[in-house]
Design a protein around this nucleic acid. Structure first.
Length: 490
RNA sequence: GGUCCUGUGGCCGAGUGGCUAGGCUGAGCUCUGCAAAAGCUCCUACUGCGGUUCGAAUCCGCACGGGACCUCCA
């Protein structure tokens, strides 16, 4: 069952058979958010994509150690390797301690992840919690000759590294090409090479977040945290490293360089990159003014949104596109997903009331295999969803007594729908069980009972009046041959 | 400018060289007191021009369009 998984590896730019280092176990590292502001929808897409991947690995029976970091220090605003980091800047703006910024947005991030039903990672390490590990790693890189110190700042020597290793392998680029695209060093720059990047950055008097180090007070560069934390928890070489495609060229390239310089071995076997989320064809970003927060998306409180969309509709919407394709956001597309999701959930609810027969008109086992094949092929959730809709059609047809299913097949079908819709795709029915909802259920039962009575007396004016009144307060009544059902309109 | 991805029916979105994904929308039918739901049927596409092939949405070339990265970014 674990032998047929195919993963697209950025390193080779091809789909490869997945073979873990230790059979039955997977080490998975994903670059998490930098918590200096609200996560936006694009960030969420990456984490939802990897949640699907994590869930499917678990479904296949792998023991997965899933590490996703929180960047809470050392992420600079520009490429100058100087000045304040993003947290300090925001802290000054909001007149808070940098760690208050970190706390505020970490909590917000977790709230959103919970709303979209993303499983928490096994370990969620922070950069500030691993300063020692980062310093140790930098020391080794210096000892091995791939870094140099200038006025308390430590730089990684890319050209030196490239003589022994391939620096641009993740983007299939040669060093000369990279150098061409880089701007000239300015007079103030203390780096030796244009591509060199900081491992440790010397603190200035006004720097808020700083730690002692062999090179004086300072803070870590952005890339070193991932190298230090991934090797600490997953080993010097591990199975899968993921992140957004925008991290590929710089962050991940530098991560490989650091780890390789330190340990002299390739840190990761499979690199996975998720594609961007766009709004009307343009990448969603705060600077473009076309972004909104998940909270705004759920409430609909934003000029670009026609209405609010439930977290599960959003999750379903994202799963309808493969993780390596760009996903274009629009109200129309999201509303289509919302309806499709409701239809899928409605059919799953019908599963419990299906009548079985001595024969099946559909090949359920084949469908089950189709679902597995879809996910084995580089986590192809759009095809999986197409197959689940096929299951929906079968369920509805059996429910209408136009098709039949055996008791054995029904067991398989139930398991299939629950496994893939809930466990693998992480969807969940959005009906809550709060006490007020239970009271509402009771009231509705009474109303439907009364309506049933007047309908029996053919008093359709009265029954329609009940239905119309309920419809005005967004409750829909449907008469089926097994009695009436009700639901709340979104 | 460089590296790379991409162009599918009204919309979204899969796609292994041949056996018409799927969802949403629209039309018709069945069911139904009506409505809704559900099912069935229909709308059968692949940017353009060449090439390879018995056969291409799928491979190759060119053109045009869109996007990403090369600067912080999931």
């Amino acid at each position: 069952m674990q032998d047929n998984l195919i993963i697209y590896n950025t390193l080779s730019r091809t789909k490869e058979k997945f073979t873990p280092i230790i059979p039955g176990r997977v080490g998975l590292y994903v670059c998490g958010p930098t918590v200096y502001s609200d996560v936006h929808l694009g960030n969420c897409r990456t984490f939802i994509s990897f949640d699907l991947i994590y869930r499917y690995l678990l479904f296949l029976g792998f023991k997965v150690r899933y590490v996703r970091n929180i960047t809470d220090a050392g992420h600079l605003e520009g490429d100058r390797d100087e000045g304040d980091d993003k947290f300090a800047k925001k802290a000054k703006l909001e007149q808070l301690e940098p760690m208050e910024i970190v706390q505020k947005y970490t909590v917000g991030f977790h709230d959103v992840m919970r709303a979209v039903n993303a499983l928490p990672p096994s370990i969620e390490p922070t950069a500030t919690g691993h300063i020692c590990e980062q310093i140790e790693m930098i020391k080794i890189i210096i000892e091995k000759g791939y870094a140099y110190v200038k006025n308390g700042t430590v730089y990684f020597d890319v050209e030196k590294y490239n003589k022994e290793f391939l620096y641009g392998q993740l983007t299939n680029r040669k060093l000369d090409e990279l150098l061409e695209g880089t701007r000239e060093l300015s007079g103030q720059d203390e780096k030796n090479g244009r591509l060199d990047f900081a491992l440790w950055i010397a603190a200035k008097p006004e720097t808020l977040m700083k730690w002692p180090s062999p090179w004086g007070y300072g803070f870590p560069g952005w890339h070193i945290e991932c190298s230090a934390m991934s090797s600490k928890y997953l080993g010097e070489a591990f199975d899968i490293h993921g992140g957004g495609m925008d991290l590929q060229a710089t962050h991940h390239t530098n991560e490989i360089a650091q780890s390789q310089a330190c340990n002299h071995k390739a840190p990761v076997n499979y690199w996975m990159h998720t594609n961007m989320l766009t709004m009307n064809g343009v990448r969603m970003a705060k600077s473009a003014g076309n972004g909104f927060t998940p909270g705004e998306l759920f409430s609909g409180d934003h000029p670009l949104l026609d209405k609010g969309y439930s977290p599960m509709a959003v999750r379903f919407f994202m799963m309808q596109t493969h993780y390596r394709s760009t996903l274009d956001f629009s109200n129309e597309a999201l509303q289509a997903s919302e309806k499709g999701f409701a239809r899928l959930m409605a059919s799953i609810k019908r599963l419990d009331n299906l009548k079985t027969s001595s024969t099946s008109t559909s090949n359920i086992k084949e469908l089950e295999q189709d679902c597995i094949n879809a996910m084995n092929d580089d986590f192809n959730s759009p095809i999986l969803i197409a197959k689940l809709f096929e299951c929906s059609r079968i369920i509805n047809s059996v429910n209408d007594e136009k098709e039949t299913i055996t008791a054995d097949d029904l067991v398989i079908l139930k398991k299939l729908m629950h496994d893939f819709a809930f466990d693998v795709m992480g969807l969940k029915s959005e009906i809550s069980n709060s006490s007020s909802d239970k009271a509402l259920q009771g009231v509705m039962e009474v109303i439907l009972e009364i309506r049933k009575d007047v309908k029996a007396k053919k008093d359709f004016a009265a029954s329609d009046k009940l239905r119309d009144y309920l419809n005005k307060i967004k409750i829909t009544i449907k008469d089926t041959k097994d009695g009436a059902t009700w639901s709340i309109q979104e």
